[in-house]
Amino acid sequence: MATLPLYAQFINLLAALLLLLSFAMLAQRRVLSLIDLFAAQGLALAASTAIVAYGTGQHHLYWSAGLTLILKVFLLPWILYRLIRKLDVKWDVEGLINVPTTMLIGIVLVVFAFNLAAPISQLASTVTRATLGIAMACVMLSFLMMITRRKAIPQVIGFLSMENGLFFAATSATYGMPMVVELGIALDVLVGVLILGVFFFQIREQFDSLDLRHLEKLKEGE
């Protein structure tokens, strides 16, 4: 087996880090730590994108990396911090399923994701193709996190982390999406978080809590 160039090994390392962070987020029960983990994930993503840009000479990826850094490492965590302080939510959040079971389901998902990515990786011609499985696993783990959390803010973090996974998948499969699309997605995420912030206030106003169980009353009928 031919040895990979150094930058590719770095990317693989960062990919592994991403996956590890995803698992950590799945297991983390405290909201503030969750945000820190999310910021760390963003940092890993920005670093890996920058390295891909350096290694392959795709200069527009530098822009993506910068955007990711600003948006996902600084801006979004800051917004979320402020939200939490204003909303004065509890630190500890209970999941729907206990942590060990969640982790086990997560492992199954990772296996599935690697299985899925294997044929695609063979078709792709990029150096980073091996990391596609990890990217897909990140998407699925984030989705799992959204499902298992009961409170609104962890769900939003899950949503944002899913976007991280998608971004990573795009970078590893095709060296990133066109700049216009990336800018559009970045804007979408930002606007989405702002709107969700408004929703948080409304939900809390209505139910005195951010627990989404209260929303079950909104069901039609009965």
């Binding site: 699925m140 499902i147 069901k219």
Partner: peptide
Amino acid sequence: IQQGRISVYLTYSFVTLLALLFFVR
């Protein structure tokens, strides 16, 4: 299928995604 619980709705889309990925690959 309208349960009123967000996690259930999320599970619907998650299962759909997994099924699609499984069958289409």
